[in-house]
């Protein structure tokens, strides 16, 4: 497979996964913002801080204004990480590999792009249609995932797409978890109200699973278990790493080289850090550095991966 195509597949999948994450967080926040929070009115600050590089002054100006925050997150082209920019970049990548991806995948990405570029969108976001629009976008995002799964050929290209997808998902889970625990100064042993955790769990679509699986009232501890170690939770860190492991094998299969071996070793070290960890090892002091190190290691691995496979220009 052409290195350029592998590169574009990787980034197409990453951007589409990023869009999905952004949409889920935004939709959750939008719904919860209608209720009054225990700590006063709900602010868009954490979402803006996570997904945009907006300056402090601007955040102050728009954190209480749902319409403005939604515009910033979804349609502002000056924001490199708005949904519009992300989908634009995903489409750009898909355009360059139209001969490789299926017609169906291309048409879905393309129609998503045209949908978000409708001129009337900004107005509709400031009205009470925001929830409907977020639903519609989320459906497109899910549709993309389904179409990709059904129509794309398996093999090495599929491997690169999934590497992109699960690296992005894993990073997203780490970042959102870190954000949520920072609110409590990383205190793992404190028992908190489940309502505090609803936001994180719903953003990762794990709220129902949590209610079904965990029966104690140690929410802070349980949620941490779920997002890091629960193998059945498709947004958990361990699940994403397991997928990365599998697809890394797919793309290196049959080509024995020192470079490939080094890449596999590097990932193995990172994977076992999570796999062989006891949850009780994470306490008020170690949680923050652990999350930071995990993120750093994953980014480093991603760099190695692109050096190995995507160098062509």
């Amino acid at each position: 497979m052409l290195s350029r195509i592998a590169d574009s597949l990787f980034w197409l999948a990453r951007y589409m996964e990023r869009a999905e994450g952004l949409l889920r967080v935004t939709a959750t926040h939008n719904l919860l913002s209608l209720d009054k929070d225990v700590n006063g009115p709900l602010t868009w600050r954490p979402v803006l801080e996570t997904f945009t590089s907006t300056g402090e002054e601007e955040i102050k100006a728009i954190e209480g204004n749902t319409g403005a925050a939604l515009k910033k997150l979804l349609t502002d082209t000056a924001n490199n990480n708005s949904l519009k920019s992300i989908i634009g970049k995903a489409r750009e990548n898909a355009r360059g590999i139209q001969d490789y991806i299926t017609k169906e995948v291309w048409e879905e990405v393309n129609s998503f792009y045209h949908l978000i570029n409708q001129p009337a969108l900004d107005n509709r976001l400031s009205n009470y249609e925001a929830a409907d629009i977020l639903d519609l976008f989320t459906r497109h995002s899910v549709l993309y995932t389904g179409i990709t799964d059904i129509t794309m050929a398996r093999g090495i290209g599929w491997g690169f797409m999934n590497l992109g997808k699960y690296i992005e998902r894993c990073l997203e889970t780490i970042v959102l978890t870190d954000k949520q625990y920072a609110v409590n100064q990383y205190k793992v042993d404190e028992i908190k109200d489940i309502m505090q955790w609803r936001h994180l769990l719903m953003s990762l679509s794990g709220y129902e699973l949590h209610l079904k699986t965990y029966r104690s009232y140690q929410y802070t501890h349980d949620v941490l278990h779920q997002v890091l170690f629960n193998e059945d939770f498709p947004h958990s860190v361990i699940y994403s790493l397991g997928r990365i492991d599998r697809h890394l094998q797919d793309v290196t299969k049959g080509h024995i080289s020192e470079e490939n071996a080094a890449l596999i070793r590097n990932f193995g070290r990172l994977y076992s850090k999570v796999k062989h960890l006891e949850i009780d090892d994470l306490n008020n002091q170690t949680l923050k550095p652990f999350l930071a190190e995990l993120r750093h290691d994953l980014l480093h691995f991603t760099n190695l991966l692109s050096q190995k496979f995507f160098s062509y220009a």
Binding site: L2, S3, R4, I5, I97, Q98, D99, K103, Y312, A313
Partner: peptide
Amino acid sequence: RQMGIPLVEGRD
């Protein structure tokens, strides 16, 4: 796509 051949750019 119709011929099933790779589409390449000069840099490939």
